[in-house]
Simulated assay, not measured.
Amino acid sequence: MFITFEGIDGSGKSTQARMLADRLRAAGRDVVLTREPGGSPGAEEIRRLVLEGDPDRWSAETEILLFTAARRDHLERVIEPALKAGKVVISDRFADSTRMYQGLSRGDLRGTVDRLHQMMIGREPDLTFLIDMDPEVGLARAKGRNGTEERFEDFGAGLQARMRDGFLALAAEFPARFRVIDGNRLPETVAEEVAAIAEGALA
Results as ranks from 00 to 15, higher is better:
Val180Met: 04
Ala195Lys: 10
Gln118Thr: 13
Arg35Thr: 01
Ser105Trp: 14
Gln160Lys: 10
Pro41Arg: 07
Arg72His: 15
Pro41Tyr: 03
Arg164Phe: 08
Gly138Asp: 04
Phe67His: 07
Val190Ser: 02
Ile79Val: 06
Leu33Arg: 00
Gly183Val: 09
Arg25Phe: 09
Glu193Cys: 07
Phe67Arg: 03
Val194Gly: 05
Phe94Gly: 01
Asp154Ser: 14
Pro125Ser: 12
Gly183Pro: 12
Glu173Tyr: 14
Thr98Pro: 06
Ala198Val: 04
Ala21Asn: 02
Asp126Asn: 13
Gly53Trp: 00
Gly144Trp: 15
Glu45Asp: 06
Asp126Gln: 14
Pro135Val: 07
Asp165Cys: 14
Met19Trp: 07
Ala26Gly: 12
Leu49Ser: 05
Leu139Glu: 03
Asp132Ser: 11
Phe178Trp: 07
Gly122Leu: 06
Lys87Thr: 00
Glu61Trp: 02
Ala196Ser: 09
Asp165Thr: 11
Glu136Asp: 15
Leu24Ser: 00
Ala140Arg: 10
Gly39Leu: 01
Glu44Met: 01
Ala198Trp: 04
Ser105Asp: 12
Leu66Glu: 03
Phe167His: 06
Ala43Lys: 04
Phe67Gln: 02
Leu83His: 15
Met19Asn: 09
Tyr101Glu: 07
Thr62Trp: 07
Asp126Glu: 12
Gly147Gln: 12
Arg185Gln: 11
Arg93Asp: 02
Ala191Ile: 07
Pro55Glu: 00
Thr68Arg: 09
Leu75Glu: 04
Thr62Ser: 10
Glu193Lys: 09
Ile121Pro: 11
Glu136Trp: 15
Arg93Asn: 00
Gly28Pro: 05
Leu65Glu: 03
Arg25Cys: 09
Met163Leu: 11
Leu159Ser: 05
Phe174Met: 14
Phe129Thr: 14
Gly39Pro: 00
